[in-house]
Design a binder for these strands. Structure first.
Lengths: 343, 343
DNA sequence: TTGTAGGCGTTATCAT
DNA sequence: ATGATAACGCCTACAA
């Protein structure tokens, strides 16, 4: 059995005073005499008294905990987001509880309930790729829990959102390839049920149109899973087919690496034979050989922005102020990377 | 103000029964009539009643939360550990609260206190590189909180530990280089205050001795920070000096990449001119060009093992059984990676 | 300046 | 089969 905890009552007993006096002394209430405060603080330090947040949370109906649910954690983007969230949370005296849905809807539902049961003061979530039914989140909102969606969002829910400018980023990527002289640009596209996949595809098309290049649907290859195996396989098939192309715009980091692998295995050179640009927040882009030019989404910035929005809402509602959900867009940037052969 | 939560009392009122009956009905207590149970469950579902874990935790002095403190999260190794911990925790009905110390001792101390305040049922920790004073952890242990240290551990504390077999791994790495024909192997070594740094260095020395190669202290270069900048700089200086060497055994992933960068910048080929082997759990090792042979530490396995040990202790102590702390060693493995030039 | 009492949501004990 | 009550640790209006 866990050792007994040392409580205010214990301090009170030892000092022959009441626990309310102890409570007030510890929070430096002006009514309490300096003598009492000294005695209480001394004993508290001596016995290494640590308040019980559970009791506090129950009392105040406020836990000072932010929840965050991500589909995976072994992924630079989400790890960066969490890191950004933590930074903001710490500064405001909040802790962070993390759940990993592992791209499983069932897990996501369970996690959401667990978060509410723990009475988190607010929740940040990036849904599963497969999530379409949002009733678990709706239920949360109905219960009055501030919610912020990031990266993978849905417009069925009237909550704050933080997204990257996928359309713009994809446009930049495609434009970059066009300016390099590429004419036949393959797009390895993401799932069509996520805004992210659609927007990137549209940005790609828009750039082609602006530069008077016909959109060829044969060059748009679906990679709905977005994992390494799929991307490698798809690209291999592409290379083995009679379709000719001189560049690939991959809708995410893993897809880009898969494409890269197959291109290399085929004995082709990057970027001489085929240029590749990837989308995402990945340390890898600069470490690969050749390092890939990429469209950076700043996970940290998204985390910071999302947590800031969430806290804003939490605080507003605590003061009974109305809070209107907002959608913040984090601009993506094109980061050109030179191949080391050019150094 | 957060919307009122729907409680057992509310159910009781609506049904004109007492909250204790509701409590029993919800947990399917045999004493309660089926009629009552049905009514209660129906209403609970209708109103989407969700228990308040805070109240439960307070009542039972048990939170069903495991805490974990890691120095960083944007790092494959720690992300993998967390992932492993989550898996185990979920299966046992526990949630996970994560704190990131950011390699800051002050933050680590704050985090530890926060964890205790939240009354986590147990804590997993990998300390800061700089942590030498363990009083914050000792205090935790004194309070009866089960503690498991992993990866970066200290033998000043009599708690369970999960570590990798660093000595063995370093031996394997060095042996691999020797068998490739390397004679002058540089070791970029880690901090001397961490077991991890010492053991890897000793493993390196042991392999040299076993293969009758004299240990040359000039070839052991300290990289106490272990960051990219330091490693790159140190290797650059090494290459600019008149010291000759044909291989580098880097004590971690980042150090390996730093070394790689400088070697490439110097116009040298890997592994033809200089072989590099790195230590760690990193997706990068297989994606770099050339992919580096590496000593794999399985972060997931460490996470699983650590969480398992922690839960074992928690359960034992709940039954008032004594639990003797154990140290588990996760074997490191050498993963050979062929350069794509050999494909 | 300090103490008393009630309550946050839940469950266990002891009635009825 | 169900209810009343106390308790977990803390805070706060009210009383003294």
């Amino acid at each position: 059995m866990r050792k007994e905890q040392y409580t205010m009552q214990d301090i009170a007993n030892e000092l022959g005073i009441s626990k309310s006096t102890v409570s007030r002394a510890l929070k430096n209430h002006p009514d309490i005499s300096q003598d009492t405060k000294n005695a209480v603080n001394k004993l508290a330090k001596e016995k290494d008294y640590q308040p019980n947040s559970l009791a506090l949370s129950l009392r105040h109906n406020k836990s000072f905990v932010l929840g965050i649910i991500v589909p995976e954690i072994v992924h630079d983007f989400f790890a960066n987001v969490i890191s950004g969230v933590q930074t903001v949370a710490y500064n405001e005296g909040y802790n962070v509880m993390i759940c990993i849905s592992n791209e499983s809807i069932e897990q996501e539902v369970v996690d959401t309930k667990a978060m509410y049961s723990s009475r988190v003061d607010g929740l940040l979530i990036s849904t599963t790729k497969k999530t379409t039914d949002l009733s678990h989140l709706q239920s949360l909102v109905r219960k009055g829990v501030p919610l912020v969606m990031f990266d993978r969002v849905s417009d069925e829910l009237d909550v704050s959102k933080v997204i990257t400018d996928d359309h713009h980023g994809a446009y930049l990527a495609t434009e970059h390839l066009i300016k390099q002289g590429c004419k036949k640009i393959v797009h390895l596209s993401g799932p069509n049920n996520l805004a992210i996949g659609i927007n990137r595809k549209e940005g790609y098309k828009a750039a082609l149109r602006d530069y008077k290049i016909a959109v060829d649907d044969n060059l748009i290859i679906p990679c709905p899973l977005g994992d390494l195996k799929e991307a490698t396989e798809v690209t291999k098939q592409l290379l083995d087919s009679d379709l000719s192309f001189d560049a690939i715009f991959a809708n995410n980091d893993v897809t880009a690496i898969g494409a890269m692998t197959s291109v290399k295995n085929k004995g082709l050179k990057i970027p001489e034979d085929i240029s590749i640009v990837g989308f995402g927040d990945w340390r890898l882009s600069k470490l690969l050989e050749p390092p890939l030019t990429s469209i950076e989404q700043s996970g940290i910035d998204i985390g910071i922005q999302a947590a800031t929005l969430l806290l804003e809402q939490i605080k507003a509602e605590e003061k009974d102020k109305e809070f209107k959900p907002r959608t913040e867009i984090i601009k993506s940037k094109l980061i050109k990377r030179e191949s080391s052969t050019q150094r």
